[in-house]
């Protein structure tokens, strides 16, 4: 049984009267334990796929289906999808001044626990856990007191996303260019975080432009997304081929 099953997905972006078709019949199937890399030219619809899956307002699904853990995502609110086990590491993480990172993480963990009928973690233990996770992605505990992503550097924002991934332990993680803008050390920290998260029950969708990341996180499949569709799929060697030849030969 696959973890994520996206079939013939069509989606548009924009207000009612000026909708623009972006996803044009996209198929992807992720089984538990698998890592899927999605590559593709700028503007091909990679972030759109991530946004549509996570339920970001502003997008309309016009055809096809998205099933996560046997549940149809179409009619679910973004927070319900997260509660079901979907996680999106943002290409551009949002800054939220005034709301501390720690407070935000607690609200998130509490919401997920409540939705799943689990007990909310005890505050002291929670704080300890978060501090350890922060340190494990090279984020100083001071970052936990600051506003969410407020004034964080590009790399710090990305590491903060990985820290959340490790804390929330979703069923499916979509990482939208989490490797972009990272220095070499940070890239390894992020990759190590993703590998630590990965297990035989969860799945990872990695959106990336660089095959370098795939040296650290070995994908089971590599897909090429162009003009709203997966036009080619293969194993890790496809990424190397793309690095070599670009996308032109496929489109």
């Amino acid at each position: 049984m696959s973890l994520l099953e996206v079939t013939n997905l069509h989606a548009t972006v924009g207000a009612q009267d000026q909708q623009k078709a972006i996803l044009k019949g996209l198929n992807i199937s992720v089984n538990p334990g698998e890592v899927h890399a999605i590559m593709g030219p700028n503007g091909s619809g990679k972030s759109t796929l991530a946004n549509v899956l996570s339920g970001r307002p502003g997008y309309t699904v016009t055809d096809g289906s998205m099933i996560l853990a046997n549940t149809n995502l179409a009619d679910m609110e973004p927070h319900e999808r997260a509660q079901l086990g979907l996680f999106l590491a943002f290409q551009y993480p949002v800054e939220i001044p005034g709301v501390s990172n720690m407070e935000f993480l607690k609200a998130s963990v509490d919401s997920l626990a409540r939705a799943r009928g689990e007990e909310q973690p005890n505050t002291a233990a929670f704080i300890k856990k978060v501090r350890i996770l922060a340190a494990s992605v090279d984020l100083d505990p001071q970052f936990l007191k600051r506003g969410v992503n407020e004034g964080f550097s590009g790399g710090e924002k990305k590491r903060n996303e990985i820290m959340q991934l490790l804390l929330l332990e979703p069923k499916l993680a979509i990482l939208d260019e989490t490797d972009s803008g990272l220095d070499i050390d940070a890239l390894q920290v992020v990759a190590e975080g993703v590998n630590r998260y990965k297990n035989s029950n969860n799945g990872v969708v990695l959106i990336t432009h660089y095959q370098r990341l795939l040296d650290y996180i070995i994908p089971d499949f590599v897909h090429v997304l162009a003009d709203g569709k997966i036009i080619q799929s293969g194993d890790k060697s496809l990424a190397l081929e793309l690095e070599d030849k670009g996308y032109a030969w496929l489109t």
């Binding site: 996570s54 997260a82 609200a107």
Partner: peptide
Amino acid sequence: ELFYLSSRGIS
């Protein structure tokens, strides 16, 4: 900001 929070399960 609202979407970022909801993407983490917050109602």
